[in-house]
């Protein structure tokens, strides 16, 4: 619904964004692809050359590769489930009339302001530390043994920390969606004889579909690359129990200084991200229209 000259102007105006993003995506990707077929170790620079698929096969044969893949998906899935479920419950709770709604909301969104390295180090040191952490002190106070969170349950601990960081985001989006639901609709459902649970199931939940989609989409984008929290807390350990694909790549690049392998890992990570994105868009993309 517009004239040719406006359509032309529109294309011109969208061009800079597309151009810079395309460069930002394609140049590093091409370089990564190139490196992934090269023998490229910073520690032995004299041995540079093509190595075919060796870097890839190394990854697929690495004992902890599939574990790392699994952990990556577990992290994304776990955080999504926790934040969406808890976020919905909290949103339903604070949508009720309560005293001090403003300050309450400030407290709930606070974790979002905490940068990931700080969040990880608070949890690791002040809470989960087996000697000095608050959890350990509470356990001792109750006469039990401190739980070794990061040693015994590394993935669960990381998922817990990341969920805490993302809970405010999920809660807020879901709360906003909840507030836009007309009370007339709920009252109509009540007149129709729907119980509280049925009102949630048939009125509230469908109304929040779009919001949940947004939460899932945006969080997945950020969660697939999660790295800092693992780096700060478990370093992928103990052993490789909490290794994820991004962390594995990081280790190859920085610890082993094997750029070729890191690049191959990077390509695998990109492919994984694309597969996830594909299923995500097919599964829930249609919810975004409307």
């Amino acid at each position: 619904m517009s004239t040719q000259s406006t359509r032309f102007a529109a294309r011109l105006m969208v061009a800079p964004s597309v151009f810079v993003l395309f460069i930002w995506m394609i140049v590093p990707l091409a370089m990564t692809l190139y490196f992934s077929f090269r023998f490229y170790r910073l520690l032995s620079p004299e041995r540079a050359g093509w190595t075919g698929l060796t870097n890839y096969t190394w990854f697929f044969k690495a004992p902890d590769f599939w574990l790392a893949m699994g952990n990556t998906l577990l992290l994304v899935g776990g955080v999504l489930v926790i934040t969406v479920v808890l976020g919905t419950l909290i949103a339903l709770l604070i949508d009720q009339p309560v005293y001090g709604q403003g300050p309450l909301r400030i407290l709930v969104i606070a974790p979002f302001f905490v940068m990931p390295p700080v969040a990880a180090s608070i949890w690791e040191n002040l809470f989960m530390h087996p000697q000095n952490g608050l959890f350990a002190a509470v356990a001792r106070g109750l006469g039990g043994q401190p739980i070794l969170f990061l040693e015994s349950y590394p993935m669960a601990s990381v998922i817990g920390i990341v969920s805490w960081e993302w809970l405010p985001f999920a809660t807020l989006i879901l709360l906003t969606a909840l507030q836009s639901l007309s009370s007339e609709q709920l009252e109509a459902a009540e007149m129709d004889g729907a119980s509280g649970l049925n009102r949630f199931r048939y009125i509230i939940l469908p109304h929040m579909t779009r919001a949940i989609t947004v939460v899932v989409l945006i969080q997945t984008i950020f969660l697939l690359g999660i790295f800092g929290e693992i780096f700060t807390t478990t370093q992928g350990g103990p052993g490789s129990a909490s290794n994820t694909l991004p962390y594995m790549i990081f280790k190859q690049a920085i610890v082993a200084k094997d750029i070729g392998r890191a690049a191959a890992g990077g390509i695998i990570a990109v492919i994984l991200a694309n597969i996830v994105a594909y299923f995500l868009m097919r599964g829930i993309g249609k919810n975004l229209d409307a």
């Binding site: 529109a10 370089m31 997945t220 697939l224 990081f250 690049a253 990570a269 994105a277 868009m281």
Partner: peptide, 29 residues
């Protein structure tokens, strides 16, 4: 204001560039 058939796809493509794990392109960048 001047949406076309490809607008939604373009928007999704832009978002998808964020899906590329930072670690994967760390060395090239």
């Amino acid at each position: 204001f001047v949406p076309g058939k490809k607008t939604k796809d373009l928007l999704m493509w832009m978002l998808s560039t964020k899906m590329m794990p930072a670690v994967a392109v760390m060395i090239p960048i």
